[in-house]
Amino acid sequence: MIKETKPSETILWRHLKSLPYFRAMVRAVEDSFYQGLELPEPVLDLGSGDGHFASVAFSHPLDVGVDPWWGPLLESRHLKAYRLLVQADGGRMPFPDGHFGSVVSNSVLEHIPHVEQVLEEVARVVRPGGRFVFCVPNHRFPKLLLGRQVFSKLGWKSAAEGYSRLFNRISRHQHCDSPQTWQERLTQVGFVIEKHWDYFDANALHRMEVGHALGIPALVCKKLLGRWVLVPAVWNLFLPYLIARRVFNSPITESGVYSFYIARRAVPSEEKPSDERPDRG
């Protein structure tokens, strides 16, 4: 049973030392949500990528990391965040029915076109009563982007909508859906949402959005040297820390542009849940 408990300041600094501040802000917030959260083992990380998040958020390696791309998996090996790495599409995973006690998926499902098929597979590989924990940008994300709001105030409706589409394309978002949509999807495959909350307000989104535009030096550093932050010293990161600290300390809000879900695989004896909205934890 995995249950993390790290001091909050440690969480924020660990992400700032290894990611550009605009990515570190949201990843540190999501990391904090896992602290104290019980994850029955074995644990599968769906869309494990380069393994960075798991290596920072969890003090022990997760059992399995699965990703469809070889490049990130090869990079992930050096972080030793997983006991086993598997190259596979999330819609066709090579695991037996009910093999895992928990599945986590951190900011992955929004990138998957065939998300319904993936959810069916998650339901198949998680045992009844097992947990499915994930987070995604929601329906507010494209609407609250700073660029969209500026164009809207100028009365340039087409430019505002085009900006949202462009930013989503840059972010590789296939969909940004509401909690109601996710509840319908999860109910369809046999999951019950235990808790749900929204986080990262419009101001935080704007800070992240501007950071994308200023993040070219970090991208060059990553391409040339294999790391996002060239000098991970406190003195060099103090300004990013000040920018990120307020967001990190008060992330949960009803107007948040991201949503965090804790779902449970229903046991056969349970009745199908009603159409009530997800609980807010």
Rank of each mutant, 00 (worst) to 15 (best):
L19K: 12
P20W: 01
Y21G: 10
F22C: 13
R23T: 12
A24T: 05
A24K: 08
M25V: 10
V26W: 01
V26A: 13
V26G: 03
R27G: 00
V29P: 00
E30N: 08
E30L: 06
E30P: 05
F33T: 00
L37V: 09
L37P: 03
L37H: 02
E38P: 04
L39W: 00
L39S: 03
L39Q: 00
P40D: 08
P40Q: 08
P40W: 02
E41H: 04
E41V: 09
P42T: 13
V43F: 05
L44C: 13
D45P: 01
D45F: 01
L46Y: 10
G47I: 06
G47D: 11
G47C: 09
S48M: 06
S48P: 04
S48L: 11
S48I: 06
G49Q: 05
G49C: 08
G49D: 10
D50E: 14
G51A: 11
G51K: 01
F53Y: 14
A54C: 12
S55Y: 02
S55V: 05
V56A: 07
V56C: 03
F58L: 03
F58K: 03
S59T: 15
H60D: 12
H60L: 14
P61L: 09
L62Q: 02
L62C: 09
D63N: 15
D63Q: 14
V64H: 02
G65W: 01
V66D: 00
V66Q: 01
V66G: 01
D67Y: 00
P68W: 04
W69Y: 12
W69L: 14
W70C: 03
W70F: 04
P72T: 13
L73A: 09
L73S: 03
L74P: 00
L74Y: 08
E75I: 02
E75Q: 15
R77P: 02
R77N: 07
H78C: 10
L79A: 10
A81E: 06
A81S: 15
R83P: 01
L84S: 13
L84W: 09
L84Q: 15
V86Q: 02
V86I: 14
V86P: 03
V86N: 10
Q87D: 09
Q87L: 14
D89S: 15
G90E: 00
M93P: 03
M93F: 08
P94K: 06
P94C: 08
F95L: 10
P96A: 12
G98C: 08
G101H: 04
V104K: 02
V104Y: 00
V104N: 08
S105C: 11
N106V: 15
S107C: 13
V108M: 11
E110G: 10
E110V: 07
H111W: 13
I112Y: 02
I112E: 03
P113H: 11
P113Y: 07
P113A: 11
V115R: 12
V115F: 13
Q117S: 15
Q117L: 12
V118E: 08
L119E: 01
E120L: 07
E120T: 13
E121W: 05
E121F: 09
V122F: 02
V122K: 02
A123L: 06
R124I: 06
V125L: 11
R127L: 12
R127D: 04
G129K: 06
R131E: 03
V133T: 04
F134Y: 09
F134N: 01
C135K: 04
C135G: 12
P137L: 05
P137K: 09
P137H: 10
P137V: 06
N138P: 06
H139A: 12
H139V: 10
R140S: 05
F141M: 10
